[in-house]
Design a binder for these strands. Structure first.
Length: 400
DNA sequence: AAAGCGCACAACCGCACGATA
DNA sequence: TTATCGTGCGGTTGTGCGCTT
């Protein structure tokens, strides 16, 4: 038995909202709130709209303190970092950007930021149906393989990879995240052995370093001088104090640890942070994260990864297909090849929250750091080594 | 001038989840 | 325990505008 539709589709109005409808909805909610029932709301105020449509209109457009357009460089950086970390969880990303809606960020990513970072044009709708993006192919397909035949792709399927975690099954989103990670790490330079010269050249030509990274590095002088530049990773720390919402970006080098992050927070709090603080009150923590439930194997990996933090049982860990793929490929999340003499150093691991606070809810990520929603404004940077595994994967496939 | 095309944004749709009866 | 409902999320589609040919 299918579920009943949320409203009578025949009698509800669709399409753009009129100013009158907006005014009605806004006035009512400002006066009475939603009443905890979006479905019933349109009837109460005489709108021929679906409750879900009302909710969307309010959240994305009519709500106070909504910002549209003009994303700052800091916001772009946060979006990019979080996209690599957690994928297309737009509501979580939006929660880090006060005044921004998930829809806004999603649109901005799909129409501008992705192209800007990956140096590609979004395929036209017409072309989407049967066009494979060459860069995605570079990241997860057969393009650069020096050993595989056709069809199977250039990814080693050995080990304990399961069907669900095979590279063929990796989504475009996961492959995009690999690409972005590589690009931010400058890993495209490691593709010397790539067999497809045309695509390799295209990738190199279209692979500018993450444009804001160097700028931020120079502006904030966060890195110890001894660190190699390609050891840089981006991290994002997030703070949710009750009275303020502060997002800070930091750049941490290998071994720099909490002190560097803390210094970054101090340096940036007067700049980027101030902008976010000005928007205090407009931020709502997502009440539901909708995390994908991992299989037992990945759950065990979580416990391993979270060693020292009390095990998986104390964490609301988030896993995704990329995480599972890397785990199935390496059996653990520690960097191996790259860490043991590879010319690209492992990513930094941050094992300590800058303020040492406990967090009540966390989601781990496969990148170098994750953002946690902490109780009472606490926050925590959680390190892991998935970035190392990712580098192993990349180097193993393309760089050797 | 008009058609084609790409882009940006708004809105819709289906699904999954949590709450509750 | 199960069915139902409301809500939230992410992917997709619709639409209007401006630019190009």
């Amino acid at each position: 038995m299918g579920r009943a539709p949320c409203c009578d589709k025949a009698s509800v109005k669709k399409g753009p909202w009129s100013p009158e409808e907006d005014a009605k909805l806004k006035a009512y909610i400002e006066e009475n709130g939603t009443g905890g029932n979006w479905i019933a709301l349109p009837q109460k105020i005489g709108l021929k709209r679906c409750g879900k449509s009302c909710r969307l209109r309010w959240l994305n457009y009519l709500r106070p303190n909504i910002k549209h357009g003009d994303f700052t460089e800091e916001e772009e950086h946060i979006i990019c970092s979080l996209y690599i970390s957690i994928g297309s969880r737009w509501s979580i990303i939006a929660a880090q950007l006060p005044g921004r809606t998930d829809n806004d960020i999603k649109n901005y990513w799909n129409t501008k930021l992705k192209k800007k970072l990956l140096g590609k044009r979004a395929p036209s709708r017409r072309a989407r149906a049967n066009h494979q993006d060459p860069y995605l192919a570079a990241a997860g397909g057969n393009m650069c393989s020096t050993s595989g035949g056709g069809g199977g792709g250039g990814v080693n399927n050995g080990g304990s990879a399961t069907a669900a975690a095979t590279p063929q099954a990796l989504s475009a989103s996961a492959l995009e995240r690999i690409q972005l990670h590589m690009r931010l790490q400058g890993l495209y330079g490691a593709f010397g052995g790539c067999s497809n010269n045309d695509n390799n050249a295209a990738a190199a030509a279209a692979a500018p370093q993450w444009p804001k990274l160097e700028t931020l590095l120079q502006a904030n002088k966060l890195l110890p001088g001894s660190l190699p530049t390609d050891a840089v990773a981006t991290t994002v720390s997030v703070q949710h104090p009750p009275q303020q919402h502060l997002v800070e970006q930091s750049l941490a080098g290998v071994g720099a640890g909490a002190a560097v992050v803390e210094a970054a927070e101090q340096q940036l709090s007067s700049a980027a942070g101030a902008n976010f603080m000005a928007a205090a009150g407009s931020f709502e923590r997502p009440s539901k994260l909708g995390f994908y439930s991992p299989p037992a194997e990945a759950e065990a990996a979580s416990a391993e990864m979270m060693g020292g933090y009390g095990g998986a049982g104390s964490f609301g860990s988030h896993h995704d297909e990329l995480y599972e793929f890397l785990y199935s490929k390496y059996g653990s999340l520690g960097g191996g090849v790259a860490a043991q003499g590879g010319h690209i150093p492992p990513l930094p691991e941050l094992h300590q929250c800058p303020d040492g606070a406990a967090a009540d809810e966390k989601f781990s990520t496969w990148t170098t750091a994750s953002c946690d929603y902490g109780a009472a404004g606490h926050h925590q940077l959680q390190g892991n080594s998935i970035g190392g595994s990712l580098q192993d994967y990349v180097l193993g496939e393309y760089g050797q």
